[in-house]
Design a protein around this nucleic acid. Structure first.
Lengths: 143, 143
DNA sequence: ATGCAGATTCAACTGAGTTGCAAGTATAAT
DNA sequence: ATTATACTTGCAACTCAGTTGAATCTGCAT
């Protein structure tokens, strides 16, 4: 969702060198309106430059651990990724059974959920994911 | 969670033969207090009888399509399964970052969520999954 | 120029699930 | 009881999404 962030600066704050590939990953995600699979990110970058998939996986992994990205576990086997910057706070997602695409929904319901689900049974929660599944408007038109 | 269901009858209603292996899958899930991975189900059955993993995957797949089971997409790569009978309605789950185990939470918050997330943007939603992540009480004690 | 750390690549591997087909088993028709 | 048929299970080989370890490459400091 819209790249309002200064990516080189964002990486600087984390003590990570803003290499071409790291910036490319952030730019691909920053200019996508929806969460993307590693495969899609890889292919998008490959339209412009040569990259090894391992590099992309390692960047995604590193960024996820640092909290720069969020990794989404969804219906299909491949994880999806999205920016986790201040312009893109945690929010529910919608995944279509047909095309598999993942839309971002409004964050409000998730915020309300936090109050309800805090600390059940002595667990310490640090994240809530809400995933809505169904058929998206595009696929509804087609079928 | 507790096998209150008559599994042979449940399968009968679906027009599925209650074979030994199909019942074994249901019994393993019915007597587990938490959602299980295919691998765990396979191993539990193997404690008593010889089974091929393909058979278990096919049964899990078939049951999921019929709505007898729910498949949960979680943090780790392997899907988890749980009974979808009337004694075990949809509910949020808690997954621990350390041990990976999946607990079932109270259904109430999910029910309330439905009202909020219905039909965004013309999508037709048919399922909502809420996943809480964190560190479970057991793992908190250890570390 | 030389050394070094960090970044990237390559090939090979893993784990979870899938596919196609063969073999086994149960039920039905003769 | 015997054969035909469909359904169930098993086996081997494969796919897909990552992961690992070691080799190379790159930019920067000396």
């Amino acid at each position: 969702m819209s790249d309002l962030c200064d990516f080189p600066q964002l990486l600087g704050r984390q003590g990570v060198k803003p290499t071409v590939l790291r910036l490319a990953v952030l730019e691909v995600l920053g200019s996508s309106p929806r969460a993307l699979r590693a495969q899609e990110i890889l292919e998008t970058i490959r339209a412009h430059r040569r990259v090894n998939k391992v590099t992309v996986y390692r960047i995604l992994d590193d960024f996820t651990r640092r909290g720069i990205l969020r990794r989404l576990a969804l219906e299909d086997r491949a994880s999806h990724y999205e920016l986790a910057c201040e312009h893109h706070p945690p929010h529910p997602h919608f995944q279509c059974h047909h095309c598999g695409q993942v839309q971002c929904l409004e964050p409000a319901p998730l915020d309300r959920m936090w109050a309800e689900l805090q600390g059940p049974l002595g667990n310490r929660a640090d994240r809530i994911d809400i995933r809505v599944e169904g058929v998206c408007h595009k696929c509804r038109e087609i079928s």
